[in-house]
């Protein structure tokens, strides 16, 4: 799973490490405007809650959740902007 994610062409990377809830979600909300349609956005977060938050948020906002994996003490969360 993480190999596939690593191979993705990331259009926008959001580094929200060190910010606590709801920081990562707000950073994602800000950055999604700069992401082209169909582009992949990667959110870096040190808050594990970001994973399920972004899953639910993507679903509600009609984006596609692609997956996540744990890096060195933080998580990389991937989603695709659709529409």
């Amino acid at each position: 799973m993480s190999e596939e994610l690593k191979a993705l062409d990331v259009a926008v990377e959001v580094d929200a490490r060190g910010t606590a809830c709801p920081g990562p979600l707000l950073e994602a909300k800000r950055a999604i405007a700069d992401c082209p349609d169909g582009g992949v956005m990667c959110i870096l977060s040190s808050d594990e809650g970001t994973i399920i938050d972004v899953q639910r948020w993507s679903k509600k906002m009609k984006h596609e959740y692609l997956g996540d994996y744990e890096d060195d003490g933080y998580w990389r969360v991937f989603m695709k902007k659709t529409a």
Binding site: C21, P22, P24, G49, I52, D53, K59, K60
Partner: peptide
């Protein structure tokens, strides 16, 4: 049981 942030709670109460 799972581990989430406020975004998930908003989704729940919506």
């Amino acid at each position: 049981m799972d581990f989430v942030g406020v975004g998930s709670f908003v989704d729940m109460f919506q």
